[in-house]
């Protein structure tokens, strides 16, 4: 198991380097010159040229890229073009906020999704199944920016029981986490249902019934544990989608997290900031995937052996 984790960790290195490469060069393709933006409108050519010189933007791209990589290796993420603050400092302030949001969202995804999936699978093709799956379909179809606004309107403006926006207390977490987790919950619900239905038709479920085991135990002990494997995979993937979603949700609910930071940085052509932000986001994703793999092995004894 330890060897497996180490091997997986080593495998993440090329992934991270790949991410830096893509982020670096994509930012070059984005129209707009950071030097011009920094100098402000109507600045003289000389000023712009001076800023370029100062930031090293006049060097060839590959030199800039290798320079960037070398700095990264030393833990130096560069300084923001906007306010000359170290990128890492800014990220370390923002990251916990996004992580908290993501964690609550994935919790909602798992609890709501699996709960709904089980309810559906226990009585397939019944009214409760059709109802739950209809809600899940709506959940998948709703765009999060609209769903977020609707939640905000209903709970904060009309009922006034939850704060509209911001990030101060646990109450502030509820709406954004719900917005972010709802789509994933719907997907997990459908996955849980189909996976459970698959397992419930197996002979060992019949065997369990024939033994005289209680239905509740059959569902939770025999069926759910076997049905969980594909669900875990989906939850892991969903976490990636969720990180992308933070960009939107943090903007809607005015949360100063990593997602919003990246959006702002892109707007300002603040290259080091964008690179740092995206790098961290992908790091989280890679780590989560690693967790999923380890968990998966732990859960499926057969994989461990092969």
């Amino acid at each position: 198991m330890l060897m497996f984790i180490i091997r997986r960790l080593v495998q993440t290195v090329p992934v991270i380097i790949g991410v830096t490469f893509v982020v670096f060069f994509i930012m070059q393709l984005v129209p707009g010159d950071p030097a011009v933006l920094l100098a402000g409108e109507g600045a003289s050519k000389d000023t712009i040229e001076a800023i370029r010189e100062q930031l090293g933007l006049n060097r060839p791209l590959y030199v800039q890229y290798f320079d960037y990589l070398m700095n990264l290796a030393n833990g130096d993420f560069g300084v923001s073009l906007k306010n000359s603050q170290p990128v890492l400092d800014e990220i370390l302030v923002r990251l916990p906020i996004t992580l908290e949001l993501a964690l609550f969202s994935i919790l909602i995804t798992i609890v709501l999704g699996m709960g709904a999936g089980i309810i559906s699978a226990v009585k397939p093709y019944s009214m409760q199944d059709v109802g739950v799956m209809l809600v899940a379909l709506i959940g998948i179809s709703l765009p999060s920016f609209w769903f977020g606004l609707m939640l905000m309107y209903f709970f904060s403006v009309k009922l006034q029981i939850l704060p509209v926006a911001g990030w101060d207390s646990l109450l502030h977490v509820i709406l954004p986490a719900l917005t972010l987790g709802a789509g994933g919950a719907a997907i997990v619900a459908r996955m849980t249902r189909s996976s459970m239905l698959d397992v419930i038709r197996q002979d060992y479920i019949r065997t369990a019934r024939a033994k005289g085991l209680r239905e509740r135990l059959i569902i939770y002990k025999h069926a759910l544990r076997n049905a969980l494997i594909p669900v875990i995979t989906v939850v892991g993937l969903q976490f990636g989608a969720l990180l992308g979603g933070t960009v939107l949700v943090e903007s809607i609910f005015a949360i100063n997290g990593l997602g919003r930071m990246i959006v702002d940085a892109i707007r300002m052509r603040d290259l080091p900031m964008v690179q740092g932000g995206v790098l961290f986001a992908s790091l989280i994703f890679v780590i989560v995937n690693l967790f999923v793999d380890v968990f998966y092995r732990f859960f499926n004894k057969r994989i461990e052996l092969n």
Partner: peptide, 23 residues
């Protein structure tokens, strides 16, 4: 009552791969 009676009536299925819980 049925659960209790199931002790008397047992079943062996065809597919020995599917009839045992893999976990």
């Amino acid at each position: 009552e049925m659960r209790k009676l199931r002790g008397d009536l047992q079943v062996i299925f065809q597919d020995p791969f599917a009839s045992l819980n893999p976990r």
